[in-house]
Simulated scan of single mutants.
Amino acid sequence: MTQFLVLAKTPVPGRVKTRLCPPWTFEQAADVAAAAVSDTIATVSSAPATRRTLVVDGDLPAPAGWKRLPQRGSSLEDRLANAFADTAGPPTVLVGMDTPQLTTELLARAADLTAADATLGLAEDGGWWALGLRKAGDASVLRSIATSTPQTGKQTLVALRDRGLRVALLPVLRDVDTAPDARAVAQMCSVRGRFRSTVEGMTA
């Protein structure tokens, strides 16, 4: 069975989701980030797993039944690769906090590493929202790929294939980076989720 990692940043005003400002304030952006983390954790908690780990920047505590691991590295590229290295063992799927529309069905597809060596979910903005690896060592390719660019996802796919891995692609999802992103993604989320109610409650 697969383990899941959630890479997250503690939702401190002025340090998270600053591209939401304007139209929202730093405090509102932090509320949106907190809601995204909450819904992501709830979904991952519902998926079968050998282990669930919150890989966190800051002092955000892990939920009950989860392990907690501080992010390690000076760049996002290193923090991603180190998250896999520091939890090496079973097949692993890493997701971030920017896709609260995540479902257990999507996680099941990401965790299906029986016929593939890796699974990759590309994002509309050019990045990726999920990476599943049968072997943690294959995450070393991430160290040489610049993150947060329109080519990050494609370059990741090429690097994995160049390593000789069989890669299964997952559905493309929209990240929450801007206020229009947040509003669009909120409509994809469950009405019972925290993210949708938080975004719909914004006055700006």
Rank of each mutant, 00 (worst) to 15 (best):
D112P: 00
Q187H: 14
G137H: 12
T152W: 05
N82G: 13
L106C: 04
V16W: 02
G137T: 14
L131K: 00
A182Q: 04
A168T: 08
M97S: 14
R51F: 06
T53S: 08
D31I: 01
V55N: 00
R72W: 04
T103L: 07
A204F: 11
D162E: 13
G65S: 09
G65R: 08
T10W: 03
G201K: 03
V32Y: 01
P48F: 04
R52C: 03
I41H: 02
L76V: 07
Q3K: 00
L7T: 07
T178P: 05
V44L: 09
T152E: 13
F195W: 08
L102A: 11
K135M: 14
A62C: 11
R51C: 12
V16P: 00
A139C: 06
R194Y: 02
T178V: 05
P23G: 12
L122Q: 15
T203S: 08
D138E: 15
A34F: 00
E200S: 11
R192T: 08
R72L: 06
R143E: 13
G153F: 08
T156K: 07
D117Q: 07
R19W: 10
R143G: 14
A42W: 03
A184C: 02
T25N: 03
L170N: 01
A88M: 05
G96L: 05
D98C: 06
P22Q: 10
R15F: 06
V6H: 10
E77D: 09
P48D: 08
L76G: 01
A115K: 09
A83K: 11
D125R: 08
K9D: 07
V176C: 06
D175Q: 13
M202D: 00
L107G: 01
Q28A: 12
A36G: 12
D86S: 13
P11L: 13
E200R: 09
T10G: 07
G73A: 03
V95K: 12
T53Q: 07
Q187R: 15
A8M: 10
Q71N: 04
A42N: 09
D59E: 12
G65M: 06
G121Q: 12
P100D: 12
A36M: 09
W128C: 03
A146R: 15
V199I: 12
W129A: 09
A85C: 11
C189D: 00
W129Q: 11
P91S: 12
